[in-house]
Amino acid sequence: ATLAAPAVKAQSKIKWRLQTYAGPALAEHVIKPSIDAFNKVANGEMEIELYFADQLVPTGELFRAMQRGTIDAVQSDDDSIAAPVDISVFGGYFPFATRYSLDVPVLFNQYGLKEIWEEAYGEVEGVTWLSAGAWDPCHFATVDPINKLDDLKGKRVFTFPTAGKFLSRFGVVPVTLPWEDIEVAVQTGELDGIAWSGITEDYTVGWADVTNYFLTNNISGAWCGSYFANSERWEELPEHLKELFKLCMDSSHYYRQHWYWGGEAKLRVDGTKMQLTTIADEEWAKVEAEAEKFWDEIAAQTPRTKKVIDIFKKYAADMKKAGKPYRYS
């Protein structure tokens, strides 16, 4: 009955369709509370309808759909929606760019990534980049255990394209499927595992039920996920609703900070569905060393990617100098 909002009332109300990369179970945490709050505070002036992964538009067409106005706003990383900007490679799990989730807001707000992102999307017609936050770390959840680098060989793993390209250097076979199909694909043997999230998400979305092992090493402490909007629709918003939407995005970013940070530790300690395994530090150092080569290759792509890589390098050096608790090695 709540749906039967008569059109007369709806005319003055601004309506947005926002599609997230997340399926319903995950969205329940990472976006729905903030959208519900937004709708409540907007008090009938504006309503955002939330759609889940692939619901209205397949993820691959999401960017274009937003550009064309089929949907008004998107929550996703740049990599997953194949945003047509050179810096989209950094959106998903860019190997070893971050160690902790707080690294992401620091990089964006204090080291200049925000300006770079604004510049890059300024060149793309019809879409405005709004904000980035830290999402979860990148760990392997697999059916069979990983104890050494060799165990990665031949594993068909669902992961981000950029992370996948990097991991394929260790024999991983990256597979891309619609997010909602992952659980079933592990069960039907299309996938051997997932390198797409931390353990909190594994438990939340049900991947912990179909895999047995969790690798504690990660190639990224957090990815940067973003909000985007159709430029025209964004410009149409009155100032106070723009501000309200910014608060809404920040509230979602903030929720993730504590949800993941606490959740990862708690599930490692108390979780019963997945057994933890670890690759020894000396061996994992090989992966980190390989990442440096990967960084240089990406830096060679465009002047802007070089700028980002330089920032990563500077940040990593600063954190190392700062010592504990920023970096322990």
Partner: peptide, 17 residues
């Protein structure tokens, strides 16, 4: 047509490794 024009203009690549 619109989707193809976009793919050509932006050199769109598939979301996969």
């Amino acid at each position: 047509y619109s989707s193809t024009a976009y793919a050509i203009e932006y050199g769109e690549k598939s979301y996969s490794a």
